[in-house]
Design a binder for these strands. Structure first.
Lengths: 191, 191, 191, 191
DNA sequence: GATGAATGAGCGTTCATTCAT
DNA sequence: CATGAATGAACGCTCATTCAT
């Protein structure tokens, strides 16, 4: 097993356990066991548990980003671009429930809060496309003139909730429902 | 101090500490100290920490319901009833950030998952009013004909996200923004 | 067993193990076992291992001081006072080898260095009597006019070395030898 | 790099780290890094850490002896020979604080105790010159008729203490102070 | 022979829970 | 009943040592 493969094995084990059991339901020893390595080995790849978690998040962002943007075309209408991105995100979450659950754990923790703060205040690049889309929409009087934070909430809040319900088995989302849900988000931010 | 008062003192202390520091930032000893009781005393009122947390959640639900429904009038239009309830909820969360933070901690934890799993089996009463409202709206072709779970997500998802942003200081919600946000949720489920 | 007795039990166990095996030869679990308490119990009496060690040292100082000063009479000649204190110290060390070995461990560690620095720079009270004695001796031209640090070294250095040799069994110190050794130290600091 | 050079590189790295940080402040991996070799390589030259430390000590003794004896002349008076050796030792320690610090670490540890225990059984040669000097002095009624162990303590105890104070910066030893200190040691063993 | 990734026992410390007072 | 001292399993993490390359 190569160095990179082992790092990934550990990361995968950690993400899975954290997604299923939360941060304190995933002791380092358990992660090690699931990854098939010794407890001390983790520390060759991740300085400590906090750093492991943060790197897990970064990896995840990097994995998700291209997937969501795949097929995104600047020349499309704002509406189509919005629908594309939002449904891509919803689909990704549904297909990768562990990733989704990890993100939820992450956001609901000191890690996530710190990260979010950086994101909003420091305007991290990954939001740019959404921000840009919203701004463009506002300028064209297509999107409601509300603070970006609220437009975000209207767009993603339902996605998160609906994904959670899907994962928990409260509903079975199919292509039609996904499209309808995303379209409803569009209705929320437009008039 | 009566038996009930002491129970409430403990519950209040626990909820506050958990809301602020998370479940593992709230050791039983700390809860006891904040509540002004001995560490062992907690166990006379709550069998163990898990049960304490679950009872905290139940208490909270029971506390919130009447507040949200206060002023709710069946004779109002569906739209007005929706706006009333949804903004009442948003206002409650904003005014009681500890309650909100606790709810988030709870939902994002094995407790929350177990709780939700129970909920799906025996549909709990607390949703009835919302369900009824949605059903009525669908029947009148005012609300989109979508699964109730999705209508829920479109209505509450943004409320949760926006409240978090408000509590974390990313946005300052005033009456106008609250109304606009809730109205946008209405747009999402109607169109 | 009273609270104080238990604290002392732990302190005694810790001092013994540290004296015999050094700081890292005395894990908290071993101290707990020797003291007949649970591992966690130690932390009710001592915030952490560092603090435990520092309190052990303080206790020891407080224990030794009155013993050495017992019978000390200001009206005696400088020589007699010196012989009194120095031989009292030597006798104490010989009779309490664990205390002596602990002190050696302590002084030869970051703890001890920090403590010593405070002592010399901040002129902690416990040295006052020796300092005073030396100053008085210098003023009366009885003691050599050397820096106090060196007078200290000439007085105590041999005591430490000789105690070590005694404890290790290289020599059996009796009253005569003790007196001769201490007298030799006096010769070193006078002419 | 030859086999011997590499061994020395490791030994030098180990001695420096142990002198500065103590035994547990000098992990094998850190020693390896400082020595510019792989962690496993150390074990080709030293069976384990204990043996490494003991060999470090032996090396040091062998290095110090000829230096201290350099310039030692049998035909000199006992006093001059004593002053020569004792001040040579003090000067060596001051000029090689790492060596001194290592020796202190060593003596104050299970290693040192074990080493001393061996020493008592088969009187090691390195003391012979001092022993001889003392015996000669006693025979000539110049040196006090005390056990050799005590004469040792009176001679070296102050040297060790004074060196520690110098290294820690509590005093700045110059040539004059060195001579005075060593002369005071002579006074201690003569009178 | 040299390497350094892997190991896992062992460390200091925390905290839910118990039970003698 | 209420208490809080005592417990010990479990945690995150370190590091001497091994061994496949």
């Amino acid at each position: 097993m190569s160095k990179l493969e082992k790092r990934d094995e550990i990361a995968r084990a950690a993400l899975g356990l954290i997604a299923e059991n939360g941060f304190h339901g995933a002791p380092m020893a358990m992660i090690a066991e699931k990854a098939g390595v010794g407890a001390g080995t983790i520390y060759r790849y991740f300085e400590n548990k906090d750093i492991l978690i943060n790197e897990l998040y970064r990896d995840l962002e990097e994995r998700i980003y291209p997937i969501i943007l795949c097929g995104y075309e600047q020349k499309q209408t704002i509406r189509n671009r919005f629908l594309h991105m939002n449904s891509a995100m919803l689909r990704y979450f549904i297909e990768n429930p562990l990733d989704f659950r990890f993100l939820e754990q992450f956001h609901n923790s000191p890690f996530g809060v710190a990260h979010r703060r950086d994101k909003i205040l420091g305007k991290k690049k990954e939001c740019d496309i959404f921000l840009e889309l919203f701004r463009e929409g506002i300028a064209q009087k297509i999107v409601k003139d509300l603070p970006l934070v609220i437009l975000f909430a209207l767009s993603f809040g339902p996605i998160l909730t609906v994904t959670r319900d899907h994962i928990l088995g409260f509903i079975k989302l199919d292509d039609v429902l996904i499209d309808q849900t995303v379209a409803a988000c569009w209705d929320a931010i437009t008039a």
